[in-house]
Nucleic acid binder design. Structure first.
Lengths: 139, 139
DNA sequence: TTGCGTGCAAAGGTTTTGCATGGCA
DNA sequence: TGCCATGCAAAACCTTTGCACGCAA
């Protein structure tokens, strides 16, 4: 069994992720935050620690926009945007990310598991489409 | 209004996409296909034409695996994998792409539109999770 | 002391862009 | 003839990797 060390960098990244209240941030944002503070923190280290934190279930990765970098967020189950009933909807027109709470979607999760054997990962899944505002603007 | 030309490259790409029966292919696969045939077809041209074909609604882009290249497919509504009731499910464990036909998911589409004003794009959306086979293997 | 983590730079892979040239209408 | 499309190479971008060094346990 591989031994894991607690390093300054690890603590700082984790504490930064907690401090932004579960907001999605990119690896670059993390680097820039520490660079501004004059704290040494290499890009590779950030990626490697994020990888490790994901493996430990403390951090979740989101691919929201295919053209830009991945986002990472500390998983806090009290935080609304990471509860199981909360789905990420991305408007393909305006680019907004909408956090949608929906009982019916939660039920579909059960349906997919029961009838199709597929356990939906709501953290990872992004529902793409067009939001109300943009659909109205188009008419 | 910008005039659009019909070029040999455009016709060849479109005809190739049709010939693979709506299968997902990467830009690289397209390039290699023509290279093998000794047909001149630059990478940039492929990307630019795919972009244009997407704008015209003839081709759909899929981001299935964040680590690899995007996939493109000709949209043929007769083709089972691109009917509105067909959803793409990607198993995060084994990496399989599952084409799931599900009436309940189709209903959720209506629900999201009616109640949340969000028009789901089933072509673009990929549902991530764990498939039955992998869940059983894990137990 | 052991070997994991760090940091830098370089590599990797996909996609975009600049620019001169080619070819459609 | 006008201007859009092509093709090449280079750039852009995010992410991973190699390697020597630092540091936690």
């Amino acid at each position: 069994m591989r031994v894991r060390y607690q390093t300054r960098q690890r603590e700082e990244i984790l504490s930064y992720l907690e401090s932004v209240n579960g907001r999605h941030v990119t690896a670059q944002e993390i680097c820039q935050y520490f660079e501004k503070d004059g704290v040494s923190m290499g890009t590779a280290t950030v990626y490697r620690q994020l990888e490790r934190l994901m493996g430990e279930g403390l951090v979740q990765k989101y691919i929201i926009d295919e053209k830009s970098a991945a986002c990472f967020a500390y998983i806090d189950r009290k935080n609304s945007c990471h509860r199981p009933a909360c789905f990420h909807c991305k408007c393909e027109t305006c680019g907004r990310l909408i956090h949608l709470d929906c009982k019916e979607l939660e039920e579909i999760q059960n349906h997919m598991l029961q009838k199709h054997g597929f356990a939906l990962d709501t953290f990872r899944t992004v529902l793409y489409g067009t939001c109300e505002r943009c659909r109205e603007a188009r008419v």
